[in-house]
Design a protein around this nucleic acid. Structure first.
Length: 460
RNA sequence: GUCCCCAUCGUCUAGUGGCCUAGGACAUAGCCCUCUCACGGCUAGAACAGGGGUUCAAAUCCCCUUGGGGACGCCA
């Protein structure tokens, strides 16, 4: 039997970080097994579903590099099929019409709470004669849940989980307007799409008991269930926006690389010995449900930063230069080429693309370049005298390579009886407008002779 | 309120009864490298939530407590 997994987000918002990890695990599991990975948009909530959210989810999936098989499936389009299943259950006496009002339901919950009982529908229309139905009330269709015994879910991650059936109630399958509920839709779709492995967030674990009732009532085989732990904020509570509960496009804008985010998300709740840096290729080869943990994890930007810095250093200089140019609003091909040449020195010093662009700004800034206060402070009268002397010699330089420049500057400081730093730091301030930058000789080579002399002159 | 799940350094985790005076990574601190900042290298501090069992032996198995999370909708 070939593996088929799916990612089934509801388009009521962006593709958030928890969803991205769920998608990643499903994708990895399918790819590992040479199976299929499907994308199904659960848009049955017509009020909250939006076109923009659908686009955000699809863009996010593409950016993360999680490709799905076949077309995107829109759940709402299958509503007739869902209703058909509900009707079948009704015809077989496994479901019934319920005319209880929302007020009645609310009272039931209050009473149950007060009595220390589980909050559930009491089944008042389960065996009642439909002739007693109140006039003009559109009924919902509820499933007849088992009332005794227990329901067991064999979960690949959580193990065997069981609950007494008295905890479960006759849930709604079809709303009074005839539209299917989530519980019905997922089960019917997962069955019809031949999903073999349902891998989803922990928050669905208790829902699974309810869904199993539908599988059983229809006589359908259960898929394998895996409920993966959730991702919490740094404080252990629910992930808030400022703590990372953002859409993946926000991570893209902050300058994170998709491969870094993938690696980070993979290691949240899954491990392979002591391995930390795991390529996608290795991830596909190694991924399995048995190594998925059961405890929730906290989102940590510091670790993401570290991973991102690693992948940044491995990234191609040309594409990094393109990305940096875009962030800096540079279109000039010569400047982009300058950035490409500067990239080895630049990318080792940045954790994100955003930081990379900030650090690269001095390479593209027109003269006179902006200068930080610390850089200005470095340009003392003595330093300026030194720089002026150096500039005179540099003007005569024939070989403008970093190595030749270093030799020349070192000879200069030796002749003047000063330390290298006494010249290098003011020089850095003049050329980069900052007290920090890539190696100064490298900067000089990339900037070129006339630009360097010009920048030195600017701060004389 | 009822039910379900979880519990190893600050964080992510390794660990599936003896290899554990608990390993790795991130973060933190110090040192080295050095033209600055990074990178890199080395070093340091840092954890089995608590209490009972089971066993010759428990981070590992069982129970309780505590703490966290989740579900309980005509939302998904």
């Amino acid at each position: 039997m070939s593996v088929i997994t799916r990612f089934a987000p509801s388009p009521t918002g962006y593709l958030h970080i928890g969803g991205a990890r769920t998608a990643l695990f499903n994708w990895l599991f399918a790819r590992h097994n040479g199976g299929k990975f499907l994308l199904r948009i659960e848009d049955t909530d017509r009020v909250r579903s939006t076109e923009a959210a659908i686009d955000a989810i699809i863009d996010g999936m593409k950016w993360l590099g999680l490709d799905w098989d076949g077309d995107v499936i829109m759940q709402f389009a299958r509503q007739a099929r869902h209703a058909e299943v509900a009707d079948k259950l009704l015809a077989e006496g496994k479901a019934y019409r319920c005319y209880a009002s929302v007020e009645e339901l609310e009272e039931m919950r209050k009473a149950a709470m007060a009595a220390g009982k589980p909050l559930r529908y009491d089944g008042r229309w389960r065996d009642r004669d439909p002739k007693e139905a109140p006039e003009g009330v559109k009924p919902v269709i509820r499933i007849k849940a088992p009332q005794t015994g227990e329901t067991v879910v064999r979960d690949e991650v959580q193990g065997e989980v069981r609950v007494g059936n008295e905890q479960l109630d006759d849930m709604v399958l079809l709303r009074s307007d005839g539209t299917p509920t989530y519980m019905l839709s997922v089960v019917v779709d997962d069955h019809d799409m031949d999903i073999t492995h349902v891998i989803r967030g922990d928050d669905h674990l208790t829902n699974t008991f309810r869904q199993v009732m539908i599988y059983d009532a229809m006589g359908w085989k259960h898929p394998s269930f895996s409920h993966i732990p959730m991702i919490h904020g740094p404080d252990g509570a629910k992930l808030s926006k400022r703590h990372g509960a953002l859409g993946v496009e926000a991570y893209r804008d902050m300058g994170y690389l998709p491969e870094a985010l993938r690696n980070y998300l993979l290691r949240l709740g899954w491990s392979h010995g002591d391995d930390e840096i795991i390529s996608t290729r290795q991830a596909i080869e190694w991924f399995g449900l048995d190594a998925v943990g059961r405890s929730p994890s906290r989102f940590d930007f510091a670790k993401l930063d570290n991973l991102n810095a690693h992948y940044l250093r491995e990234a191609n200089d040309g594409s990094l230069a393109q990305e940096t140019a875009k962030r800096l609003g540079v279109a000039d091909a010569a400047i982009v080429e300058r950035l490409r040449r500067a990239m080895p020195g630049l990318k080792a010093r940045a954790k994100t693309l955003k930081e990379l662009a900030e650090n690269a700004a001095f390479y593209v800034a027109p003269r006179p370049i902006p200068m930080t206060d610390k850089a200005k402070a470095l340009l003392t009268p003595e330093a300026k005298t030194l720089l002026a002397g150096l500039a005179d010699e540099l003007a005569k330089a024939g070989d403008w390579s970093a190595a030749a420049l270093e030799a020349q500057v070192r000879a200069f400081v030796e002749a003047r009886q000063v330390k290298l730093g006494q010249v290098a730091q003011p020089l850095r301030a003049a050329l980069a407008g900052s007290t920090t930058s890539p190696g100064i000789f490298e900067v000089m080579e990339i900037l070129g002779q006339s630009e360097c002399l010009g920048r030195i002159k600017d701060c004389a």
